[in-house]
Design a protein around this nucleic acid. Structure first.
Length: 635
RNA sequence: GCCGGGAUAGCACAGUGGUAGUGCAGCUGAUUCGUAAUCAGCAGGUCGAGGGUUCAAAUCCCUUUCCCGGCUCCA
């Protein structure tokens, strides 16, 4: 026998000892992991030699194995209930699993609970997962006999001569494994939703029926996950958008087009003001450009060739075709080219909150996050290739400052390098990619390299922020472009009195204002920091006696530039506070006889906390400080 | 685009062939009250749009618009 040792909770045990299996069972081991990182079934033929470590459900690998096994159990249950269903694939995912079936009638929510019940029975039976191997030819025979066409297709595509199967309680599935020792190893699972999904994700293929589910180590973990899903629902920007009267969409206007209501518009205006001020400080020049342009412009830019699917049909104006803009870049180039540029002027940095329209397939539209008309916080930096690194450094600083201002402290950075299809010289790609890399390193930013994931026209840096629920969102992108300057004959006059080609850097910090707004709503759960809140202060009276004083107080605050709302009605104070809270107004000023007599102010924060101010000026100082710091002080 | 679900009062929803309902919001009146909902009354709907079946359609059928969940984390 080969000498295999197994590491159970730090203790190294010989594999040929009788009690190893018992001990693995005792620590609830689901699988074994070799020193090289290969994971095997406990009962399977592990092969190889060396030290193996017990994998439990507490590790990410263990949880993934459990979820994958749960998907098999689900497939088993589905086959029991709907024998005509054909099984396809059922992997584990980041927070659960799914399995795709080819079945004539799609699943309903009622089906899900029936399947869940059947799964529970299978789990109770404690069927062992048994691994078998057989030749490809035999496996094809087997699955052909079972009428499982998809499995046959999968096996035919496998290169190895031998494939593995897993059997559990009579249900056999082609699977690479590994699996948990037995169905009873699955402790807590739930089926979540059904959906259509194309076979192999290709819309040319047949539409299958997918069931999503999830599994966790304990029912407490599962409960926590379901609570998280509920929290995500509560924060949904579409729901909060209606409740807080921020924006809407209308059937009459069309899909993917956003109406910004006064509250949302006020937030947007505040973001835009901040954005413009900071861009001016950072040396950008602001532009405004048209919404349509002759189609020839888009032919020249290459958008008609590369981007046609996302562009709208041109409109005829006096016999010429005009196109609604999907991008701002050609306009910025036109501004650059409106004069002869000297190398002394570079870098030239143009910024615009440019509204663009892009065709998105109807099925992918989603609230503010995926729309057809949106405003980019776009900028283009024209520079010499030797200026790339320092420009990227500036842009990185700028981006992180802006993201931090909105409370995004955590982010992941990605550097994407040259893809197979590209334009520009290899030399330039090399120089630009290295400049991006150096800038990232100088900033001390940890980043991942995505080889070949760059755009055809140049390498790029993407920054994905993490929101308060730790969800990842891509907003910022910084892209080097060798293509457009050449296509448009962009030039600068260098010291040698000759024309040279500048490099263009495209960058967006927030991406799209619509999308960024949607992310912000969810990030803040609708409770915007004071500087962004559409209404910053509400003034509430205890009785009608204080109406005059309340109006005066509100007037002083409004004159000081604060956004103030009054509630002088005859409702009780509890009702008014509730109204103010529902609107998520950061501060409510409560005015009763006490305050009127002493001229002092009682302020109730959104979180229920009270603060007293001796007079209105001390309150103003307090509010001004919080606004100017753009702090996210309280929820 | 495709699969599935949906659209009924401002909002959340009930109503499966026979007189369109509930709660909240709104309006009116009473009440003048100290930290998340005072009470009563009133009003509000081409049942998303268009067509069809029927004596009769929110309800059944067709078309269409829009919204929602998804559509390779690859045995």
């Amino acid at each position: 026998m080969e000498s295999i040792v197994i590491n159970i909770e730090g203790e190294v045990v010989d594999a040929d000892k009788d009690d190893v299996l018992k001990r693995l069972k005792k620590v609830n081991a689901l699988a074994l992991k070799s020193a090289e990182g290969h994971i095997f079934d406990i009962s399977g033929d592990v092969g190889g030699t060396g030290e193996l470590t017990a994998v439990t459900i507490d590790s990410p690998e263990g949880l993934a194995i459990c979820r994958h096994s749960t998907s098999h159990i689900m497939a088993h249950a589905v086959k029991d209930l709907y024998p005509s269903a054909k099984v396809t694939i059922g992997p584990s995912t980041e927070d659960g699993f799914y399995y795709d079936f080819d079945i004539d009638t799609p699943f309903t929510p009622d089906d899900l609970s029936a399947i869940e019940k059947a799964m529970q029975k299978i789990i109770k039976r404690n069927n062992p997962f048994v691994r078998k191997t057989m030749s490809k030819a035999d496996a094809i025979e087997l699955f052909k006999a079972m009428d499982e066409d998809y499995k046959v297709e999968i096996i035919e595509a496998i290169e190895a001569d031998e494939v593995s199967l897993y059997e559990e309680g009579g249900f056999v599935d082609l699977c690479r494994g590994p699996h948990v020792p037995s169905t009873a190893s699955v402790r807590a699972f739930k089926l979540l939703k059904t959906a259509g999904a194309y076979w192999r994700g290709d819309e040319k293929n047949k539409m299958l029926q997918r069931i999503y589910g999830t599994a966790f180590a304990t029912s407490e973990d599962l409960k926590r996950h379901i609570e998280l899903l509920e929290e995500i629902k509560r924060r949904d920007h579409r729901r909060l958008g209606r409740e807080l009267d921020l924006f809407s969409m209308s059937d009459d206007i069309g899909a993917g087009l956003i109406l910004w209501h006064p509250n949302g518009a006020m937030i947007r205006k505040t973001i835009e003001d901040f954005w413009r001020e900071e861009h001016i400080k950072a040396g950008y020049k602001l532009l405004y450009t048209p919404h349509i342009a002759r189609i020839d412009l888009w032919k020249k830019s290459g958008h008609v060739d590369f981007y046609k699917d996302n562009m709208y049909t041109p409109m005829d104006i006096d016999g010429a075709d005009y196109e609604i803009k999907p991008m701002n870049c050609p306009f910025h180039i036109a501004v650059y080219k409106s004069a002869l540029r000297s190398y002394r002027e570079l870098p030239i940095k143009y910024a615009e909150l440019g509204t663009v329209y892009r065709y998105e397939r109807s099925g992918v539209l989603h609230g503010l996050l995926r729309v057809r008309g949106f405003t980019q916080d776009d900028a283009h930096i024209f520079c010499r290739i030797d200026q790339i690194e320092s420009e990227i450094l500036d842009v990185l600083d700028f981006t992180l400052y802006v993201l931090r201002t909105f409370g995004f402290e955590k982010y992941d950075v990605y550097l994407s390098t040259r893809p197979e299809k590209y334009v520009g010289t290899l030399d330039n790609w090399e120089i630009a990619t290295e400049a991006l890399r150096k800038a990232l390193e100088k900033k001390g930013l940890k980043y991942e390299t995505d080889p070949g994931e760059g755009v055809f026209y140049g390498p790029k840096i993407d920054i994905k922020v993490k929101d308060s629920l730790n969800r990842q969102w891509q907003c910022s992108t910084i892209q080097v472009d060798f293509n457009l300057p050449e296509r448009f004959d962009v030039a600068y006059r260098a010291s040698d009195d000759k024309d040279h080609l500048p490099i263009m850097i495209h960058r967006a910090l927030m991406g799209s204002l619509e999308r960024f707004f949607g992310i912000l709503i969810e990030h803040y759960a609708g409770a915007f920091p004071l500087w962004l809140s559409p209404v910053q202060v509400s003034v509430l009276t205890i009785s009608e006696r204080q109406a005059e004083f309340a109006k005066e107080t509100a007037g002083v605050l409004m004159k000081a530039g604060l956004r103030v709302e009054t509630d002088l009605g005859d409702e009780k104070i509890g009702y008014k506070i509730r109204q103010s809270s529902i609107k998520k107004i950061p501060y409510a000023i409560l005015i009763g006889d006490k305050e009127m007599e002493s001229q002092s102010l009682t302020v109730r924060k959104r979180n229920g906390e009270n603060i007293s101010f001796a007079d209105i000026n001390s309150l103003l100082d307090f509010l001004r400080e919080e606004i100017e710091s753009r702090r996210y002080g309280h929820k």
